[in-house]
Amino acid sequence: MTALFTILFYAATAILAVGLAFKVVQYARTPAPLKIPTTPAPVTTGGVVLRMAREVILFESLFKSNKWIWLFGYMFHGALLLAMMRHLRYFTHPVWEWVALVQPFGMYAGFAMLAGLGALWFRRIFVQRIRYISGPSDHLMLILLLGITGSGLAMTYVARTDIVALKQFMLGLIRFDWQPMPSDPILMAHLGMVIALMIIFPFSKLLHAPGLFFSPTRNQVDNAREKRHLAPWAAKLEAGGE
């Protein structure tokens, strides 16, 4: 089991890192031929940085468009951040001070994740308009995240695992000095689903995380009148080349 998970973890990490890098490069190279910031838009670069920050930190556009989705989406993402910060204790030695500080709060974040995910899935199933546009991957993604959250909570509150041995296993992976993994079924399910998530990440809608930064309607400065927008390939055409 240890060997299997060790190999899977390395493979999943490689797929995640390479896949994500590939996608980011692809996004960066995709031409944005037109000036299309959604107005009212900032007229300076500094303003755009602020707008993106509000987008990333507060989910501003989502808030403006739908309060319910924002509420549950924000709940889920905030709790996810907290839970991930708490998990850093398995990968750092000695554990960073601020990780130790947020660690106890992360214990309850799982419930907020569960509630947020549950509500978002409820929406996909029972809101007719949303149900119509939901593909299998939309449902499966939520089920996967619910599974990870559920198994994580189960380890905190029901069937615990040997977290000292788990940290040794994780540090072993990072330091290439492999250690045995505790063979609790829930832990294996949890890690297995996390591996699946890592592998799926670069091929799925989860790419909205890096993708947000490449949205032309959000990352462009509204200065079309002051400065003519000319994509490099268009400039080449205009200069007479092909």
Binding site: Y10, F176, D177
Partner: peptide, 18 residues
């Protein structure tokens, strides 16, 4: 990823443990 690890495994004094 695996090749340097084989060498590294012998060099490092092991994983920090309580």
């Amino acid at each position: 990823m695996f090749l340097p690890s084989l060498a590294a495994a012998q060099e490092t004094g092991g994983v920090p443990s309580p």
